[in-house]
Amino acid sequence: MKISDIMKRDVVSVTASATIGQAVDLFVARRIGTLPVVDEANRLVGMLLLSDVLELVMPDFVRMIEDLDFVHDFGAVETQKPSQAILARSTAAVMKKPVSVEETAGLLRAVAMLRQHNLRDLPIVADDGRLVGIASRVDVGAALLVSWGISRSSNTTATGGT
């Protein structure tokens, strides 16, 4: 089975000039975790992850202390919000380099890409680089499990969000 057989074709994406604030709206409205960033020809140029946006309010100590079990209350930083200036920046400033596979990619290869890049969602592009679909870790993983032939359910088409 190929990735194009199971991918979602209705992809929510933004352009690099969209602001982080606009991206935040899309994350909330569509309940997604990954926003592919495309140019005017719909070619994939980057990805904006929900986790990268959350990183904007992550306190510094989280990156410095390995085991945070002993901190039971984040106190003053618990209610920290990004400033208007940060929300007005373009997604280009925060986005990651894109990771994608072609439509003909196999499912195991897609799982390996997600694993290697530690991603939740994998954009799928056509030969000319145009964004044509997206598949989540659950979409690809469940489809691969079905191919083992031991599950009674055979619903391989993605329906839910990512």
Partner: peptide, 16 residues
């Protein structure tokens, strides 16, 4: 000592 210092000052809401 510095990482815990950053932790305490951040949750206190004072400059580190």
């Amino acid at each position: 000592i510095a990482p815990v210092t950053v932790l305490i000052t951040e949750i206190l809401g004072v400059s580190a």
